[in-house]
């Protein structure tokens, strides 16, 4: 791994009982880069992200986040990453401000820093109108914006986003995608999973295609298209999946 790599995974394998969820996945993400893990439901995207964030222990293989191992040094890694879970789960009886104060607080930020940071995030993610309303009363789009603010509250070097636009309408999804690009523009490494091909096409610098737990191909959109001889990401994705299924 070079010093510039924010995320590095080498041969990650994860078994759940006898089920092989992730099979020898290796990838690299650099600062300022948005890397999209593309795959159908059950392809192993969430499991890969969980292993990288220290929530799951790999059966085999290793990973580093900014040079630190998520398994042996989970607290340090969790301070470096901002992780967005796939279900926008927030504490319904807390307000977005209290949610951000709590997650920022446990990440080690002081009260003064937190207040400033909440102001910045509220500005960036347009949270002011509902910052002091309970999360349980917010719409799905508003909740997702709070969830992203939660992932960003401690100013992490690395963002790991599990299906950040799933269940969002087009307007909300576009807003979130713009924010993802903006965060990459600030030098953060972003690793996101999605099964929305149009979104990956729009947001990601590089794309890794996961199928049945295996990373069957990775590269930029143009590289994928030229590799498969197709003109869109959808066609390229389908071609790669078919090719993988035909392999013994």
């Amino acid at each position: 791994m070079t010093m510039t790599e924010a995320i590095a995974a080498d041969g990650l394998v994860r078994l759940f009982g006898d089920v092989l969820a992730v099979d020898r996945v290796s990838l690299r993400v650099e600062p300022g880069e948005v890397y999209g893990l593309l795959g159908a439901n059950g392809a192993g995207k969430t499991t890969t992200l969980r292993m990288l964030s220290g929530l799951l222990t790999p059966t085999k293989g290793s990973a580093t986040i900014a040079g630190f191992c998520p398994i042996n040094d989970p607290i340090r890694v969790k301070r470096i990453i901002g992780y967005l879970t796939g279900d926008t789960a927030l504490y319904a009886r807390l307000t977005p401000r209290e949610t951000l104060q709590f997650f920022g607080g446990v990440s080690g930020s002081s009260v003064e820093t937190l207040d400033e940071r909440i102001e910045v995030l509220a500005q960036d993610l347009d949270l002011f109108s509902f910052l002091d309303r309970r999360c349980g009363t917010l719409s799905t789009g508003q909740r997702q914006r709070v969830a992203i603010a939660r992932a960003l509250i401690h100013d992490p070097q690395v963002l790991i986003l599990d299906e950040p636009t799933a269940a969002l309408d087009v307007v909300s999804a576009r807003f979130i995608n713009q924010r993802v690009r903006a965060e990459a523009g600030r030098g953060r490494a972003v690793l996101l999973s999605t099964h929305k091909l149009s979104e990956a096409e729009l947001v990601c610098d590089r794309i890794g295609v996961l199928h049945a737990g295996r990373l069957i191909h990775e590269g930029s959109l143009l590289e994928l298209q030229s590799e498969t001889g197709t003109s869109t990401l959808t066609e390229a994705f389908l071609a790669l999946v078919e090719r993988a299924e035909d392999e013994p």
Binding site: S53, L55, P74, K78, I81, D87, A89, A92, F103, V106
Partner: peptide, 14 residues
């Protein structure tokens, strides 16, 4: 049940 535990586990808490 509410799905918030996973969010909590992503925080840097022992």
């Amino acid at each position: 049940e509410r799905g918030t535990l996973q969010t909590l586990l992503t925080a840097p808490l022992m």
